[in-house]
Design a protein around this nucleic acid. Sequence first.
DNA 1: GCCCTGACGTGAA
DNA 2: ATTCACGCCAGGG
Length: 136
Amino acid sequence: MKSVDTKPSPDHSAILRVIRSIPVGCVASYGEVAERAGLPRRARLVGRVLGEVPPGEEVPWYRVLRSNGRIAFAPGSRGFREQVRRLSGEGVLVVSGRVDLARHGWDRNLDAVLWAPPAPSAKKSAAKKNVSSKKR
DNA sequence: GCCCTGACGTGAA
DNA sequence: ATTCACGCCAGGG
């Protein structure tokens, strides 16, 4: 036997390693994963690798989304529903196939969360008595 | 080896 | 918010 074995590509394992390290309840974009794996601009490779991951592997593939927080699968498709289900199961809110990265993003800037942005509803209702009705 | 496709990303119109 | 054009790169035909 010379070289008929599988492909232990370092990039491949690096990507899986990063994905496996995404905390529960958090999500990351393909681009982020690629970057953290030392492969900047290789977002597509991340998608390809995930597609090759055999079922049964302990890889939280569902925590990986597009850079805009949208699920990569076509809405309504099998994978789409499965991903929504899994994310919801971890407490990640998914609205219209989309996740609020400022809230669940792994790479999110903590300032955005700790500083608490001004009430966006100040335009419609000029603060009646309940300043915050959503978030938290 | 060339061409097309794709679990992507970003900037511009 | 949407659509388009490009950039990137591994596979498959």
